[in-house]
Nucleic acid binder design. Structure first.
Length: 494
RNA sequence: GGCGCCAUCGUCUAUCGGUUAGGACAUCGCCCUUUCAAGGCGGAAAGACGGGUUCGAUUCCCGUUGGCGCUACCA
C-alpha cells in the first residue's frame, strides 16, 4: 500500500502576540509538507476560553501570512476537514470522550483543585512523580451518577497504566522511554466541557489526517499521553519530530522578558519577511558549505532535510538576522523598489499617517520640525543617556520602579490601547504616590527620546507593545535592572 | 524534588572512527575609498570533564557536570 500523502500542521494558540517560535515551527512543517508534495494545515487551538482572543488569532494569521507562509487548509481558507478552530469542534470531542468513557479508558473525576494541590505537594516531598492518585477511579457507578445529578463539577481524566514503559519514537531523536507510572492521568475534558490540548490535538490530527507532527520540544514529556490516546482509539499516530526551542543569548528559552519575540516587532523595525524566514530556515537546516546563505522560501523547501533539523536549542542571533536583512535590502531591491518599500514601511497605512500627523500638527511651527519630532516613531533602539532619564521631581529608585512596574503591567494588558496604557501609567503613579506628570517624564524620555514630544500614550500605542517593551527595558537597564530583592518588593507593593 | 531532552570557535553549524577539526555571523588587522557603509584579503577563536570500546576517538557506550524543557481543569 502506498503511503498516504504527507500532511503537516501548525496549531498556534491565540493567547498573545504572534511569536517567532510559531513562525519557526510553521516554517518547518511547511517545508516538510511541500518538500514531499503534501499539504500544510493551520489549526487554531483555542480550547482555553479564558485566554484565547479573536484579536490574537487575527494577528497570528496576519503575521504568518506576512512571513510568506500559505496554508492549504485553515480557518480563513476553509478545507475539507473543518472547522479549523477547536472552539467550534466541541461536539466532536464530546463524542470521543464518551467513547473513551464507555470503553473504560477514561473516568470522571470529582476531586477539588485543593485536594489535587495537597496531593502534589505530598508527592513532591516524597520524591515521587506528580501524578493523579486514582481516587475517583474507585467510585461506583451509582456514586458517579448521584454526584453528577447533584450538579457536582467534574473533569474527565485519561486512564494510564501503572506498569511498563512507553516508547516514543521521535524521527530525529530516536526512541525515548518513559515509565507509565511517571505519566500523569491527564485531564481530557475540563469542567467547562471543553477539551484540553491533549485530547483535542489527538482527535484533530487524526481527523485531519495529519501524517507528521513537528512541534516544540516542550511537548516531549506529554507525548506518551498522546500515544496512549491513539492506541485507545485504535488509530495510527502521526510521525513525531520534536523541534528545539529557540533561545535567548543566555540559552534560556526565548522570552519576551529578555528579547523581542514578536513577529510584529521585527516587522515594525523594518526587517523583511524574506530575511526573517531565511534566518529561521537557517536555524532549521543550516546552509551547506560553499552554498550562499541567501535562500527564498522555495529554496528552503527544496533543500529541506529532516536529517539536518537540529536537536540542540539554537540562540536567536539577532546580529546574523541583521546581516541577512542587510543583504536583502541592498542586493534584492533596485533603488525604485527600495524607495517604495521604505515608504510603505514608514507610512504603513493612510490611517496611521493621518493619526501621526494630527498629533504633530499642533506642536510644530515649521514643517521642518517634523523630522526630529517624529524620528522616534521610525527608529529602533534610541540613543539614551542615564542622566536624561533622571528628573528633579522624582528620585532614581522611583524611576526604576516605575519602569519595572510598567514593563510587568503592560505585558499583562489585555488590549493595547491608549485607554489601557493610560490607566496603567496612572495606576503606577498612584502606587508610587507621585503625580502622573512627574512619573510620565522618564517615560517620555524612554519612549520618545525626549521629555517633550507628542502625547505619550498615543506614542506607545503607535509603537506597539513589542517596541515599547524593548525601549522600557533599555531604559531600565541604563539605570540598573532591579535586583531579585527589588523585584519581589516592588511586585508585592503593586 | 521527579521525569525527559541536549552538549564542536562568543553565536549558527560541518564532520556520519583516521581531517592542519571546515564554513557563516560577530570580532580584530590590512586593502579599496572624499566620510561611513558595502566589498576584497588575512588573523585570532572550539570538540565540558572522567572512564571505557578500538590500532586509533570530536565521532560509539557509561558516568559526572552544565544548560534546557515538562511537572495545571494553559497550550
Amino acid at each position: 500500500m502506498a503511503d498516504p500523502p504527507v500532511r503537516t500542521r501548525v496549531a498556534p494558540s491565540p493567547t498573545g502576540d504572534p511569536h517567532v517560535g510559531t513562525a519557526y515551527v510553521a516554517l518547518v512543517n511547511y517545508c516538510f509538507a511541500k518538500k514531499h508534495g503534501g499539504q500544510f494545515v493551520l489549526r487554531i487551538e483555542d480550547t482555553d476560553r479564558a485566554r484565547s482572543t479573536a484579536e490574537s488569532e487575527g494577528a497570528i494569521l496576519d503575521a504568518l501570512h506576512w512571513c510568506g507562509l500559505a496554508w492549504d487548509e485553515g480557518p480563513d481558507v476553509g478545507g475539507p476537514h473543518g472547522p479549523y478552530r477547536q472552539s467550534e469542534r466541541s461536539a466532536i470531542y464530546r463524542r470521543y470522550v464518551d467513547e473513551l468513557l464507555a470503553a473504560g479508558h477514561a473516568f470522571k473525576c470529582f476531586c477539588t483543585s485543593q485536594r489535587l494541590e495537597e496531593m502534589r505537594v505530598a508527592q513532591r516531598a516524597a520524591g515521587q512523580p506528580p501524578r493523579y492518585d486514582g481516587l475517583c477511579l474507585t467510585n461506583s457507578r451509582e456514586e458517579i451518577e448521584r454526584r453528577e445529578a447533584a450538579g457536582e463539577p467534574f473533569v474527565v481524566r485519561l486512564k494510564v497504566p501503572n506498569e511498563g514503559v512507553c516508547v516514543v519514537e521521535d524521527l530525529r531523536r530516536g526512541p525515548i522511554e518513559f515509565e507509565w507510572k511517571s505519566v500523569d492521568m491527564q485531564v481530557l475534558l475540563k469542567s467547562d466541557g471543553l477539551p484540553t490540548y491533549h485530547l483535542a490535538n489527538v482527535v484533530d490530527d487524526h481527523l485531519m489526517e495529519i501524517t507528521h507532527v513537528f512541534r516544540g520540544e516542550e511537548w516531549v514529556s506529554s507525548a506518551p499521553k498522546h500515544l496512549l490516546l491513539y492506541s485507545y482509539f485504535g488509530w495510527q499516530p502521526p510521525k513525531l519530530v520534536h523541534l528545539p526551542l529557540l533561545r535567548n543569548p543566555d540559552k534560556s528559552k526565548l522570552s519576551k522578558r529578555k528579547n523581542p519575540t514578536g513577529i510584529l516587532f521585527y516587522k515594525v523595525l523594518g526587517y523583511l519577511p524574506e530575511a526573517l524566514i531565511n534566518f529561521l530556515g537557517l536555524l532549521a537546516n543550516a546552509a551547506h558549505e560553499g552554498d550562499g546563505e541567501l535562500m527564498d522560501l522555495s529554496e528552503l523547501v527544496r533543500r529541506f532535510e529532516l536529517e539536518h533539523v537540529p536537536t540542540g536549542g539554537p540562540v536567536f542571533d539577532v546580529a546574523k538576522l541583521d546581516w541577512l536583512n542587510g543583504r536583502y535590502l541592498r542586493e534584492k531591491l533596485d533603488p525604485v523598489a527600495f524607495a517604495g518599500l521604505a515608504q510603505q514601511w514608514a507610512a504603513l497605512t493612510p490611517e496611521r499617517r493621518t493619526r501621526i500627523a494630527a498629533l504633530a500638527q499642533p506642536r510644530i511651527e515649521r514643517l521642518s520640525d517634523l523630522g526630529l519630532l517624529l524620528a522616534f516613531l521610525f527608529a529602533g533602539r534610541l540613543p539614551l543617556r542615564a542622566e536624561d532619564l533622571r528628573g528633579t521631581k522624582i528620585d532614581e529608585t522611583s524611576v526604576r520602579k516605575a519602569l519595572a512596574l510598567a514593563l510587568w503591567e503592560l505585558d499583562a494588558l489585555a488590549e493595547w490601547t491608549v485607554a489601557g496604557i493610560e490607566a496603567t501609567i496612572k495606576r503606577i503613579a498612584d502606587v508610587l504616590g507621585k503625580k502622573v506628570r512627574d512619573v510620565a517624564r522618564p517615560f517620555y524620555v524612554a519612549i520618545t527620546g525626549s521629555p517633550t514630544s507628542i502625547p505619550l500614550y498615543d506614542s506607545m500605542e503607535l509603537l506597539g507593545r513589542d517596541l515599547v517593551r524593548e525601549r522600557l527595558r533599555n531604559a531600565l537597564d541604563l539605570l540598573g535592572a532591579p535586583s531579585k530583592r527589588e523585584q519581589e518588593e516592588w511586585k508585592a507593593a503593586s
